[in-house]
């Protein structure tokens, strides 16, 4: 079950905005053992996409070595308050989630 996401986007100086996003995900490496002593299979986010006003601005590829409950920060140029943001992820089991917001 994809967990909730959180996003915060604020204007820095000039026309640069900083976007911070948190995703709830176990990011299992496949090297960790569960309570039954068996290895927990790999389960991790593969694709992270950031859209600004409907247009893709960042395509991210991630692996199991990104920390559990990943937090990312990105910077956008030419952005302004009120611009729409959509951040989505897709994992290796085909699960996905997304969050919509606006630059504050």
């Amino acid at each position: 079950m994809p967990g909730p996401m959180k996003m915060r986007a604020t204007m820095m100086k000039g026309d640069t905005a900083e976007v911070r996003v948190l995703m709830s995900h176990p990011m299992e490496t496949g090297l960790r053992k569960g309570p039954d002593g068996k290895l927990i299979p790999m389960h991790f986010i593969e694709i992270v996409t950031v859209k600004l006003n409907g247009k893709v601005v960042i395509n991210g590829q991630t692996s199991q070595s990104v920390s559990r409950n990943p937090v990312f920060a990105f910077r956008l140029k030419g952005a302004k308050t009120g611009d729409k943001l959509e951040i989505s992820w897709l994992d290796n089991k085909g699960e996905s989630n997304k969050i919509d917001g606006a630059i504050a």
Partner: peptide, 15 residues
């Protein structure tokens, strides 16, 4: 991880 930046994004990432 690898991040591709299109126009509108600065080449910056924190993870």
């Amino acid at each position: 991880a690898k991040f591709d930046f299109e126009e509108g994004a600065l080449p910056y990432v924190k993870v």
